[in-house]
């Protein structure tokens, strides 16, 4: 019975989160709990919603129109560039850069910073999960 429950949990929660390491899976699970708390109708994070979060443009912290793709480009396997300092940014896609989405502290740090830079506020649990699924899918 216990094994069945574990198997079922993996099916329900693990399907789209496949490939995340254990610490990241724990983080994703925490985000799911919060997303469910915020909206009882929540089922799972969604790559399509994440894509929209990533590509949509907003008036950011600097007062200019900006999206995540402004720095990371629309091709997540490509090298990005910080437009202010001209410093290159290693690819965001885990398929092109195996260190991405492996360190929870790094992921939390950048989600906080970059949501503030683009959206002028921190992301909700739903938004964070969606965008992580999107990045993971690339």
């Amino acid at each position: 019975m216990k094994r069945y429950i574990i198997g079922l949990s993996v099916c329900v929660f693990g399907l789209n989160a496949a490939g995340f390491n254990p610490s990241m899976q724990t983080y994703i699970s925490d985000l799911k709990v919060q997303a469910k708390k915020d909206n009882s109708g929540f089922i799972d994070f969604d790559v399509k919603r994440g894509e929209k979060i990533f590509l949509s443009k907003h008036i950011g912290k600097r007062g200019d129109e900006i999206s995540c793709a402004t720095c990371h480009t629309q091709n997540l396997t490509a090298t990005g560039k910080n437009p202010t300092t001209n410093k290159s940014i290693k690819p965001l896609s885990p398929s092109a850069n195996s260190t991405r989405l492996t360190d929870v502290a790094e992921v939390k740090k950048w989600l906080k910073r970059n949501f503030n830079d683009v959206y002028k506020r921190e992301g909700t649990a739903l938004e964070k999960g969606d965008v992580l699924y999107f990045i993971k899918s690339k």
Partner: peptide, 12 residues
């Protein structure tokens, strides 16, 4: 650092 020349560069 939370407003580092217009960017959020906050650290723990």
């Amino acid at each position: 650092l939370d407003n580092h020349f217009g960017t959020d560069a906050s650290l723990d």
